[in-house]
Amino acid sequence: MSFELNSQDQDTGDHTRFAEAKSMRKRTEEDARLLANRIALLKQEEAKALKKIEETRKKAKEIVDMKARNLEIQRKKEEEKKQQEESEKRRQMEKKQQKDRERKMKENRSHSLKNKIQNDAQALKQLRQENLEAIEAKRNEERMMKISIKEKINKDKLEAEERRRKFAMEKKMALKAELERKIEEENKIRREKEEEVNKMEQEELELIQRLQNTQLLQRTAYEELETAIAGQVDVDTVLGSRY
């Protein structure tokens, strides 16, 4: 009978160890699964962020290129308009000069040929000077226009770069805050699970202790029964006093 009790104890211990090993394995698998899910989520968030950054940069470049094209078109239009205005101004000036010359020629018809040649030479010299001055003025205006366009492009680039930097910083802070929230949530779940596991482990220990106490009572009862049989003691009396 003692051999049967020992065998039963051994089986119970083996089952208990098996249950504990299985439970530990499941907890480890669950931890690994949760970790894999978190890693996958972080990779997804990183991929989304990288894609968004690429799209933003592409859009910013398109905007800068479009602005540059618009500025170039506007510059050409303004240049053509200015050339037309200058051309018209020169034409009017030449027309006025021509009228002046004609007027002078009419007024000086009585003058000698020498005076006429001198007057024509002086007028031609003046016209060349005016043309030179007009050309120089046009060159100065073109240089100023180029400088203005260059400054505008540089300013737009700096503003676009500042907007990109600000956007990237805001995005980074938002991602960091979201990640912190998710980490805190994961930690909360882990703590709750750990607390639940601790309670279950405590309950398991209590059950094991109760079972051990019961088995001890059983062994004591059997020993008293054997003693009673060997010594011709009243078995009903002994068992009644124990139970």
Rank of each mutant, 00 (worst) to 15 (best):
residue 30 E to M: 11
residue 30 E to T: 12
residue 30 E to F: 12
residue 30 E to S: 14
residue 31 D to Y: 09
residue 31 D to K: 10
residue 31 D to V: 08
residue 32 A to M: 02
residue 32 A to V: 03
residue 33 R to L: 05
residue 33 R to T: 07
residue 33 R to D: 07
residue 33 R to F: 10
residue 33 R to Y: 04
residue 33 R to K: 09
residue 33 R to W: 03
residue 34 L to C: 01
residue 34 L to T: 06
residue 34 L to V: 10
residue 34 L to W: 03
residue 34 L to F: 08
residue 34 L to D: 12
residue 34 L to G: 07
residue 35 L to A: 05
residue 36 A to S: 14
residue 36 A to Q: 13
residue 36 A to T: 11
residue 36 A to R: 14
residue 36 A to I: 01
residue 36 A to K: 12
residue 37 N to F: 11
residue 37 N to G: 05
residue 37 N to S: 14
residue 37 N to R: 14
residue 37 N to A: 14
residue 38 R to P: 04
residue 38 R to V: 04
residue 38 R to W: 04
residue 38 R to H: 08
residue 38 R to K: 02
residue 39 I to D: 06
residue 39 I to N: 03
residue 39 I to F: 07
residue 39 I to C: 00
residue 39 I to T: 09
residue 40 A to W: 02
residue 40 A to L: 04
residue 40 A to E: 09
residue 41 L to K: 13
residue 41 L to M: 06
residue 41 L to H: 11
residue 41 L to T: 09
residue 41 L to R: 13
residue 42 L to C: 01
residue 42 L to W: 03
residue 42 L to D: 07
residue 42 L to N: 11
residue 43 K to V: 03
residue 43 K to Y: 04
residue 43 K to P: 01
residue 43 K to F: 10
residue 43 K to S: 06
residue 43 K to W: 00
residue 43 K to N: 09
residue 44 Q to R: 09
residue 44 Q to I: 05
residue 44 Q to K: 10
residue 44 Q to S: 09
residue 44 Q to M: 05
residue 45 E to Y: 02
residue 45 E to S: 04
residue 45 E to F: 00
residue 45 E to R: 14
residue 45 E to T: 06
residue 46 E to V: 04
residue 46 E to R: 09
residue 46 E to D: 08
residue 46 E to Y: 00
residue 47 A to M: 07
residue 47 A to K: 10
residue 47 A to E: 14
residue 47 A to C: 03
residue 47 A to F: 05
residue 47 A to G: 02
residue 47 A to Y: 06
residue 47 A to T: 08
residue 48 K to H: 13
residue 48 K to D: 13
residue 48 K to E: 15
residue 48 K to G: 01
residue 48 K to S: 10
residue 48 K to A: 12
residue 48 K to Q: 15
residue 48 K to P: 00
residue 49 A to R: 12
residue 49 A to K: 03
residue 49 A to P: 03
residue 49 A to Q: 02
residue 50 L to Y: 03
residue 50 L to H: 03
residue 50 L to F: 02
residue 51 K to R: 12
residue 51 K to V: 05
residue 51 K to D: 11
residue 51 K to M: 07
residue 52 K to M: 12
residue 52 K to T: 15
residue 52 K to S: 13
residue 53 I to T: 09
residue 53 I to C: 00
residue 53 I to H: 06
residue 53 I to D: 12
residue 53 I to F: 05
residue 53 I to M: 12
residue 53 I to V: 12
residue 54 E to W: 00
residue 54 E to P: 02
residue 54 E to M: 01
residue 55 E to K: 10
residue 55 E to C: 01
residue 55 E to S: 03
residue 55 E to I: 03
residue 55 E to M: 06
residue 56 T to W: 02
residue 56 T to P: 01
residue 56 T to M: 06
residue 56 T to D: 13
residue 56 T to L: 07
residue 57 R to H: 13
residue 57 R to N: 15
residue 57 R to M: 12
residue 57 R to T: 12
residue 57 R to E: 15
residue 57 R to L: 14
residue 58 K to I: 02
residue 58 K to R: 13
residue 58 K to Q: 15
residue 58 K to M: 07
residue 58 K to E: 14
residue 59 K to A: 15
residue 59 K to S: 14
residue 59 K to E: 15
residue 60 A to W: 01
residue 60 A to K: 03
residue 60 A to Q: 06
residue 60 A to C: 04
residue 60 A to E: 07
residue 61 K to M: 11
residue 61 K to Q: 13
residue 61 K to E: 13
residue 61 K to P: 00
residue 61 K to C: 00
residue 61 K to N: 10
residue 61 K to Y: 11
residue 61 K to G: 01
